[in-house]
């Protein structure tokens, strides 16, 4: 893959494609690129929240460990998707699920503390970032509801 600046990568990710160049540069300044090999644990439930991630390529599983039942994959995040968003919504302060790469995965990591500070400083950027994150969270919520409905369950019969 030809080398691209982080800002370009960020722009090409669907998430921030409407962002103005100076804001994109601000994000790029607090972002870094990370890669994981297949099966690598990215973070574990309960760890301190310090980064959120935007997948560029590959696939990441978000897992919860249920005592007596083992690990269950709740959701996967692929290209253009965000995970670890709880870092930017610092109510819990800890990761609420574990993340593990299912394939070789490349992602952009954004420092959550720096992101919050940048958003505080520039409310225009802050509005954009948090609106985008609200979108991500809302989509997750909808998807989770559908998952709960168990839509493929066979009914009672004829």
């Amino acid at each position: 893959m030809e080398p691209r600046s982080l800002a370009e990568v960020l722009r090409s990710a669907q998430l921030f494609w409407g962002l103005e160049p100076q804001h994109l540069e601000k994000l790029a300044a607090i972002a870094s690129e990370v890669t994981w090999t297949e099966g690598q644990v990215i973070f574990r439930e309960g760890e301190a929240d310090d980064r959120l991630y935007l997948v560029v390529e590959g696939l990441v599983a978000l897992e919860m460990y249920i005592p007596n039942r083992g690990r269950a994959t709740i959701l996967t995040a692929g290209p253009h998707e965000v995970f670890g968003w709880s870092a930017a919504v610092p109510v819990v302060g800890k990761k609420t699920a574990s993340a593990r790469s299912l394939q070789r995965t490349r992602a952009i990591a954004i420092d959550a503390g720096a992101l919050c500070a940048a958003c505080e400083q520039d409310h225009h950027l802050g509005y954009y970032v948090y609106r985008t994150l609200a979108d991500v969270i809302a989509s997750r919520l909808t998807a989770t509801r559908l998952q709960l409905l168990d839509v493929y369950a066979v009914g009672k019969g004829e």
């Binding site: 669907q14 696939l59 599983a61 083992g70 690990r71 269950a72 994959t73 709740i74 959701l75 996967t76 692929g78 290209p79 253009h80 998707e81 299912l102 394939q103 989509s139 909808t142 998807a143 559908l146 998952q147 168990d150 839509v151 493929y152």
Partner: peptide, 23 residues
């Protein structure tokens, strides 16, 4: 391809079909 519920052998996507639109 995606599934709603996966076991540990599944290496593919997990989640409902509409979320595949995100990409």
């Amino acid at each position: 391809v995606t599934v709603d519920r996966a076991d540990e052998t599944w290496k593919g996507r997990v989640g409902v079909v509409p979320i595949l639109f995100y990409a």
